[in-house]
């Protein structure tokens, strides 16, 4: 475990004990990354802010459910944010915004501390993504980062839903094989 992972894991344990100071430190450490996830998926600043608050409400209530043996703390936090943003995207009241409106969010450029993930790990996923056909790698990114649904993707690539789905399944399994040491 990296120092940061260990620190986040310890903060989560203290948040589970209802330690409000630890909660604030966890927010300071993780909110910029979780906000980036919400912004990228929701493409709307005020909705992303609202989503970020909801994400941290869930973190406050569910911190005790984090299991260190199942994965690192940042991945767990990112998953809480992604799941909530996806729920919002799929909720009925929201019309399809279209996945082509990416990059509405200003990009301040990654700093040296941009990511909890080690450089080698980042390179590994890039290497693995590059083993996929370019359009499939793009579809994985659109689904994972932009929250695109199978339906939206099948329209974008003009292929039947089932074909799209088996495309992505194969791509995921290929990625997992490549990523699993």
């Amino acid at each position: 475990m990296t120092d940061e992972t260990e620190e986040l894991s310890a903060l989560l344990a203290r948040v589970a004990l209802r330690d409000r100071r630890a909660f604030q430190r966890l927010y300071d450490a993780a909110a910029p990354r979780l906000f980036a996830i919400c912004l990228r998926m929701l493409k709307d600043r005020s909705e992303a802010e609202d989503a970020l608050q909801e994400v941290f409400v869930r973190i406050w209530h569910n911190a005790g459910r984090y299991r260190p043996e199942r994965g690192n703390a940042m991945a767990w936090l990112n998953t809480v944010a992604r799941n909530h943003a996806i729920d919002r995207l799929r909720s009925a009241r929201r019309g399809a915004l279209g996945i082509e409106v990416a990059e509405v969010v200003a990009d301040p450029g990654p700093g040296p501390e941009a990511s909890a993930i080690s450089r080698s790990e980042t390179r590994r996923i890039e290497d693995c993504m590059s083993t996929l056909m370019p359009d499939r790698a793009e579809a994985v990114r659109l689904a994972y980062l932009d929250g695109a649904s199978y339906l939206e993707l099948s329209e974008r690539y003009a292929i039947p839903l089932n074909t799209l789905r088996s495309w992505l399944r194969r791509s995921l399994l290929q990625l997992r094989r490549c990523l699993t040491p």
Binding site: M74, A75, N78, G109, A114, S115, E121, L145, L179
Partner: peptide, 8 residues
């Protein structure tokens, strides 16, 4: 999860 590293 490392895919999230693409987001600054």
């Amino acid at each position: 999860d490392p895919l999230n590293a693409e987001l600054p």
